[in-house]
Design a protein around this nucleic acid. Structure first.
Length: 715
RNA sequence: GGGCGGUUAGCUCAGUGGCAGAGCAUCUCGCUUACAUCGAGGGGGUCGUAGGUUCGAAUCCUUCACCGCCCACCA
């Protein structure tokens, strides 16, 4: 056998992956008999709008380790891959590409836009699939699922209908987080908070001086609020007072509400329910005393007719103009231009979020949250690392209703139809179905129905991923993989995704979606900076895998990657693991050179020392197994690295060189070395699957399997 | 405003009551027929601060400082 001195991953990796695919063992139903107990992981579907980044490589590696380890332990291991249509995210990416070509989605109709985005995501999906293969992932491609596949969409419709029937869905005109740039509403989670410096204007309101950061919204003021205990203003509470405004004289009511901070500004605040969350809540509490909210800004961020002469003006420009005009009129007392406060901004473009009153679909979330809190409290679902359990519970216990409608074109359309005949301004008549268009309105029998133009928040459908993929009539055999064993994902989507999956699973199936949640951190560069294209510090996992080998990349993503913590990675580190993989290769090369006369069928008598070496390996293997069982992947990888290199190669092999010269002891020692090395290959296989398979195929072993993938775990 | 995490060797981090560890980097020596993508050996830390508990503290308790993150309706 002519074995090259250095391992050349590029020449071997593709071939090895093809071998695996040929065996069919990625599909758990094809596994040999000893595999019975199911073990399942759902791959968090990568967005089908961009190639993979290093973060994907992290979760692919960790999940592949779990899958391969459990498969070798005789479990029916299912790793179900997928791709995410990623609604709003993809729409933004695609629109950016259109813009680069000087186009816009408004140049085409909605169907045409949808079709173009569909084609775009399918192309990306193929690319991403190849990249996942390049990373050595042993997932079951026969079950590859797209988040817009029929079964997923149907499941989403069914859930929505069930919720609507049970009164958990409501449509209300409520204040929502709106981005006038992206022209859509967001849930609270998609809003970032930033400390920014703004002007704080002090405005005369009759006998009051009120502080506000947004003078342009004053046309929407419907009350003045003070704290009920504030002695300064007690005499005004409940009274109408006369104020001078840019639109002439006006009467406005003074109300008392606990939300007002006596210490802030002058202790009195204008109430603008149509454009401020706090003010909206004040209005909810004082409906009888106040007029209906007045909307002064529209969806395009322009002033409405309610703003009189400012109508049509951009709200930001109006802010300045209104302030100037008020100053001229003498009702602007002063301006504090050093005022720093936290404001809501769009997580995508950073533009100020405009709270607007809009009709949207909401989920009454408390009834869903309660069982999901219980499931984590009682240990049905375990979160690793443990400190995220507290973070989860805190969020869940303070959860607010979820706005699931988005004003986008790319996504699952909401299966709700409005009857135009019997809907009035006060009362809209909506018909919700499981997707099919209704023939007539059940109320009035009319057929003048219009479907809602909104789509679902992507997280509403992806929150149903576990049961949408594993429970359906067409593939009943898949049900044994639900609930899944582990959900491995980034801590940044604990609320977005993990929490929603737990809630929606319990709601629809009365079962938890997964038993363990393992959260990994963010990958940063060697200076601990976030990787970003604009900084130019990104490490492209595919390029690195091509240069140093997939196994080296995987090793570098595991060792030093502690649960729930950010990790750093550098090219130098990857190079180090390339050396390690090469070291393994050379252990193999050494053994083959010195064991040419080795016959696995022989049964030589082992010396005491030989037995000790075997025993020592067993102990180390046990430690590594314990680490894997406890989600300590970094420790497991490090122990493997250390034992195989610095114990097995540096010491055991070195000591054995003399023994192998001794004809009497030689056969026994060959047996021991090959046996331990085969054990190392098995232990290492989940971490560095490609090189271990390549070597395994060439090893002289008894009862050799088709692939090391289905070898028995050596503990 | 509330919460969480971190602070250990030059760097990245393990270590949660019993003699301070790993990898990388560095220095010295060695091209010995598995591997120079290697081997042998060395240097390097008052474990953020101040106090407490203990026979014994990087580890438990308290204080402070600095860094990072998450949540939150101060106009």
């Amino acid at each position: 056998m002519n074995i090259p001195k250095a391992y050349e991953p590029n020449k071997k990796e593709k071939k090895v992956y093809k071998l695996w695919e040929k065996t069919g063992y990625f599909n758990p139903e094809e596994l040999p008999d000893r595999h019975d107990e199911p073990f399942s992981i759902l791959m968090p579907p990568p967005n089908a709008n961009d190639p993979l980044h290093i973060g994907h490589a992290v979760f692919i590696t960790l999940q592949d380790i779990m899958i391969r380890y459990n498969r070798m332990n005789g479990k029916k291991a299912l790793w179900l891959p997928g791709a995410d249509h990623a609604g709003f995210e993809t729409q933004v990416v695609f629109e950016r590409k259109l813009k680069e070509k000087g186009k816009s989605r408004l140049d085409m109709d909605r169907d045409e836009f949808y079709k173009q985005v569909w084609d775009y995501t399918q192309k990306n999906r193929d690319l991403v699939r190849d990249q996942i293969k390049k990373l050595g992932a042993s997932c079951d491609w026969s079950r590859d699922t797209f988040t817009l596949d029929e079964k997923v969409v149907n499941t989403t419709y069914k859930t929505f209908k069930k919720m609507a029937d049970e009164g958990l869905i409501y449509r209300k005109k409520r204040l929502v987080n709106y981005c006038t740039n992206h022209q859509t509403a967001f849930s609270d989670l998609e809003v970032d908070h930033e400390e920014r410096k703004t002007n704080l204007y002090y405005i005369k309101y009759g006998p009051f001086i009120l502080a506000t950061t947004r003078p342009e919204t004053k046309f929407g003021d419907t009350a003045i609020a003070v704290h009920p205990d504030d002695r300064r203003y007690r005499k005004y509470v409940g009274k109408q007072i006369k104020i001078r405004t840019l639109l002439g004289e006006k009467k406005i009511k003074v109300i008392a509400d606990e939300a007002v901070d006596q210490e802030f500004g002058t202790g009195a605040v204008k109430v603008t329910p149509a454009h401020s969350e706090v003010d909206f809540e004040i209005w909810q509490r004082h409906k009888g005393e106040m007029p209906e909210p007045i909307e002064v800004i529209d969806k395009d961020g322009k002033m409405t007719d309610a703003a009189g002469p400012y109508s049509g003006m951009d709200a930001k420009k109006a802010r300045k103009k209104v302030a100037e005009d008020m100053d001229e009129m003498g009702i602007l007392q002063r301006v504090d231009d050093e005022y720093e406060h936290s404001m809501s901004v769009c997580y995508k473009c950073g533009q100020e979020i405009e709270p607007l009153l809009m009709e949207q679909w909401f989920i009454d979330i408390k009834p869903l949250a309660e069982p999901a809190i219980e499931a984590v409290k009682n240990g049905d679902v375990t979160i690793h690392p443990d400190n995220y359990r507290k973070v989860y519970l805190h969020w869940m216990e303070n959860i607010k209703d979820w706005n699931i409608s988005r004003q986008n074109w790319w996504g699952i359309e909401i299966p709700a139809w409005k009857c135009m005949d019997c809907s009035t301004d006060e009362n809209e008549e909506w018909i919700i179905t499981e997707g099919e268009e209704p023939d007539e309105c059940p109320e009035c029998g009319g057929d003048n129905l219009e479907q809602d133009t909104d789509v679902f928040d992507t997280w509403f459908s992806s929150g149903q991923w576990p049961f949408a993929t594993l429970i359906n009539e067409d593939e009943p055999e898949l049900e044994k993989y639900f609930p899944t064993s582990v959900m491995e994902t980034g801590f940044d989507i604990l609320f977005f995704w993990v929490a929603r999956m737990i809630m929606l699973s319990l709601y629809r199936t009365e079962q938890i979606p997964f038993k363990d949640v393992y959260l990994h951190g963010l990958v940063r560069d060697e200076n601990k900076d976030k990787m970003s294209k604009s900084k130019g510090n990104v490490i492209n996992p595919i390029e690195v895998a091509e240069e140093y080998g997939t196994d080296a990349l995987r090793m570098s993503l595991v060792v030093g990657n502690m649960p729930g913590k950010d990790m750093t990675i550098s090219e130098n580190e990857i190079k180090g693991y390339r050396n390690y993989v090469n070291k393994i290769w050379n252990m193999f090369r050494f053994l083959m050179m010195r064991c040419q006369d080795y016959d696995p069928k022989n049964d030589p008598k082992l010396s005491k020392k030989d037995k000790e070496l075997l025993e020592e390996f067993k102990e180390k293997a046990k430690e590594i197994t314990d680490d894997l069982d406890n989600f300590q992947f970094s420790h497991a990888g490090e122990k493997l690295y250390h034992y195989s290199w610095h114990r097995f190669a540096d010491e055991i092999i070195e000591e054995s060189k003399d023994v192998l010269e001794d004809e009497k002891k030689k056969a026994a020692r060959q047996e021991v070395l090959i046996s331990i090395f085969a054990g190392i290959l098995k232990l290492a296989h989940p971490f560095i699957p490609l090189v271990t398979e390549e070597i395994y195929q060439k090893m002289p072993l008894e009862d050799k399997k088709e692939t090391i993938m289905i070898e028995e775990w050596p503990v």
